[in-house]
Design a protein around this nucleic acid. Structure first.
Length: 419
RNA sequence: GGGGGAAUGUCCCGAGUGGCAAAGGGGGCGGACUGUAAAUCCGCUGGCGUACGCCUUCGUAGGUUCGAGUCCUACUUCCCCCA
């Protein structure tokens, strides 16, 4: 059981805080008592801001998305703020160098591609606890420079801004922090103020690296409107062996299906470390806690059953129940029955081009190697199999006679080749 | 304004006397062992070529040299001291 995230003597009365606490989402809160009272008093409206710097989110972003889902499940109203405006400036938190500036067109394209995942996790609409999505460019771009400075500048001191981790990290590493980025925290604070006024949004959530940014918003609301608002952050999730969540060989574990196939997404969860299964079930699935407790208690090789449940449930949330079952079935056929499954991710190669193709080229084509040299080294290390037969000669022609074959790299990465 | 230092393999940290594809970690990948896990041990970790090999890399741009990560000049960014 995870440690009690609440201060001594505090027991939440609201479903929202109780569930977040039980399932392990809570790292820090500006005022547990006040937030709990607000959650009990009526519909709690909370927001999380999301960057639009890439075309897909990855599992590292999933945690806070789940917090919005929990809020809605508890009767609250979630607001997704797309950072169309803030992305024009760039959040320095957690980055050790300045990102290249994105064009407005890039940002618009990213937002389009990013929005879909929220529809999977939240119910949108006009009802009291329906989710809303809003782009902060709507208000941030309206301000003139002098107007912005006069309105909000007096409420921030450089002394304090310099003390925030996002700034200190950059300074300590002797990396430049541009004035542009330095302004990011003001913009995020203004977001919170604006949402508080428009929708009565009184809570901002985020990752633990957002604490400083969120607190700035809480204080701005108190100073300008004399109202109370709250900050709540989630812990940084790492695996039991300390690796950051969501980084694998192939890069980030993307949530968009065009960047990472549901099958591979399922595999990601299937390969969870034993020690993380219970924690991840609580965070990344909707299964009830007693069911999770049962799964978590499985010992030895039986814990694999829990991992399959985790994989299927987590995949169903993002890619739908059907895709999750398909992925589970493909894995069952490929791993447990040793059969070819047409549901494995496939690589299609024309018969003519296969004729003279070397094993090296095939491995690159399958996405198992990033370069020919990499493929050669992998083959030398015995990493590559075709239909279970280890490939030994990197330069030999591919030995595939039928119309399809199973490619395998390492113990667990599989692809189907269709000729 | 003056003086002194720093920037290294585009994942991170970090050695580096003019001969360097560049020590060592971490991370990652692969092999063995397993349960598609962890731990442990071993191997790999710039690109192209079957290969003697070729190409591109040490903040940016020039220069000296047969040869430059290493020396010189200018620039960019950061740190420290003096004013």
């Amino acid at each position: 059981m995870s440690a009690n995230p609440f201060p001594p003597g505090f027991t939440p009365k609201s479903d929202f805080l109780r569930v977040l606490g039980e399932r392990g989402y809570i790292h820090q809160c500006s005022d547990f008592e006040g937030l709990d009272a607000a959650a009990c008093a009526g519909t709690l409206t909370a927001y999380i801001g999301f960057d639009a710097t890439a075309s897909s989110y990855h599992v590292g972003n999933l945690l806070v998305m789940m917090m919005l889902r929990r809020l809605q499940q508890a009767g609250g109203k979630p607001i997704v703020v797309m950072g169309g405006g803030t992305t024009k400036v760039g959040d320095p938190s957690g980055k050790d160098e300045t990102r290249r500036l994105l064009t407005d067109a890039d940002i618009a394209a990213n937002i389009e591609s990013l929005s879909h995942v929220f529809a999977k996790l939240l119910t949108f609409g006009e009802g009291p606890s329906d989710a809303r999505m809003i782009d902060n460019d709507a208000w941030l771009s309206r301000f003139g420079y002098v107007e912005f400075l006069r309105k909000f500048g007096p409420h921030f001191t450089i002394n304090r801004m310099l003390s925030f981790d996002s700034v200190k990290l950059r300074l300590d590493r002797e990396q430049p922090l541009s004035f542009l980025e330095f302004n990011y925290m003001l913009m995020q604070a203004v977001d919170f103020l604006e949402l508080n006024r428009r929708f009565g949004c009184s809570l901002q959530m985020g990752g633990s690296d957002q604490w400083g940014n969120i607190i700035n918003g809480v204080e701005l609301i108190r100073r300008i409107d004399q109202k109370s608002a709250f900050a709540l952050t989630a812990p940084l999730i790492a695996t039991a062996s300390g690796a950051k969540m969501g980084k694998t060989a192939a890069g980030a574990v993307w949530l968009n299906a065009d960047l990472l196939k549901p099958y591979d997404y399922w595999q990601f969860w299937r390969n969870t470390e034993d020690a993380d299964v219970g924690r991840f079930l609580k965070l990344y699935t909707d299964l009830p806690l007693d069911e999770i407790a049962r799964l978590e208690a499985l010992a030895g090789a039986e814990i694999n059953e829990a991992k399959k449940v985790l994989a299927t449930e987590a995949t169903a949330l993002i890619h739908g129940r059907e895709a999750a079952e398909t992925a589970a079935g493909a894995a069952r056929a490929a791993f447990e029955q040793g059969q070819l499954s047409s549901d494995l991710p496939t690589v299609e190669i024309a018969r003519e081009s296969l004729a003279g193709m070397s094993n090296t080229a095939l491995m690159v084509a399958a996405g198992f190697a990033v370069s020919n040299g990499d493929a050669r080294r992998q083959i030398a290390g015995g990493a590559f199999r075709i239909d279970g037969v280890k490939v030994t000669d990197a330069n030999a022609a591919v030995a595939v006679s039928g119309s399809q074959a199973e490619l395998r790299k390492g113990n667990s990465r599989k692809r189907l080749v269709i000729v």
